[in-house]
């Protein structure tokens, strides 16, 4: 079972030990670790407001910082960590696995997720509804797949998208609140829903004519893809480090407004 919580104290107050994970490890690796320890799973990518552990520099990808700071804060409770260390994550994920093992003295199971041969459907990516809720559910589906009812609802809500969000789930996740319900999910998050997190062809897929915000986390190598794709598709690149500045907010708001009015300010 996946732990759903907002804060570190909330997670620490739960009975029993936990298996931490980050990125998109193969589902069987997560299940094997959880079964072995009789533990629930906790996603370390999420911002639970963990104190800064200083294991990684401040000027560093905030997603990786979340993984490491969460692991440090939850260390007494973690039976082990299932780490994504392959091309489906990044070098940051690979280095974090080593740092967690060496600095936090937690058992780390390094995994690589090459993706399944069959490409899964994009139900939530193409559905209508609050973007943050859909992205969060896509990431939870790493552990808990959509129910039949959720799948049916997603299919039924499908409409023509008005704008696209390309990239990983951002930190802070509140960036997604700026987008309309008719936002199509693209990039890595879409790859995750399709079960192919390392598929760069899928990651660089952008529908013709759709206005897209190309997001990259500050200090993430995906910025190169985001910038290049934005140039090719006349989209807008946006990067965020630890907070959404007034300028970033205004840029995204203006882009979405212009996208929805066909370019008329």
């Amino acid at each position: 079972m996946l732990v759903v919580a907002d804060t570190i104290p909330e997670i620490l107050a739960r009975p029993g030990r936990l298996v931490g994970f980050y990125g998109v490890p193969p589902r069987e690796a997560l299940k094997e670790a959880a079964d072995r320890h009789g533990a629930d799973l906790v996603d370390l990518d999420i911002d639970y407001g963990a104190p800064v552990s200083r294991v990684v520099p401040d000027a560093y990808c905030h997603i990786i910082r979340n993984c490491v700071d969460n692991a440090a804060a939850l260390a007494p409770k973690l039976a082990c960590i299932v780490a994504a260390t392959g091309p489906e994550k990044c070098d940051g994920g690979r280095y974090a696995a080593r740092l967690m093992r060496d600095r936090l003295e937690i058992e780390v199971i390094a995994t690589v997720n090459a993706g399944s041969d069959a490409t899964g459907p994009t139900l939530l990516s193409d559905a209508t509804g609050p973007l943050k809720k859909r992205v969060v559910r896509i990431m939870r589906a790493i552990v808990e797949p959509l129910t039949v009812r959720e799948e049916d609802e997603a299919r039924a809500s499908r409409v023509e998208p008005t704008v696209g969000f390309w990239g990983t789930p951002p930190h802070p996740i509140g960036l997604l609140d700026l987008f309309p319900d008719t936002t199509q999910v693209l990039g890595w998050t879409r790859c995750v829903e399709q079960g192919r997190p390392a598929d760069m062809d899928l990651e660089t897929f952008v529908p013709d004519g759709l206005p897209v915000v190309f997001f990259s986390q500050g200090f993430c190598q995906k910025a190169a893809l985001a910038r290049s794709l934005a140039e090719r598709h006349r989209g807008m690149p946006v990067d965020v480090h630890d907070s959404v500045s007034a300028a970033t907010r205004a840029k995204v708001e203006a882009f979405i407004r212009l996208a929805c009015t066909g370019g008329t300010p």
């Binding site: 300028a247 205004a250 840029k251 212009l258």
Partner: peptide, 20 residues
């Protein structure tokens, strides 16, 4: 404080940027 940019093509904005 900052720089704001809009480029138009055919009188439609094609590039928005705001550099802080």
């Amino acid at each position: 404080r900052d720089a704001k940019l809009v480029s138009f093509a055919g009188r439609r904005p094609v590039r928005l940027d705001w550099s802080v």
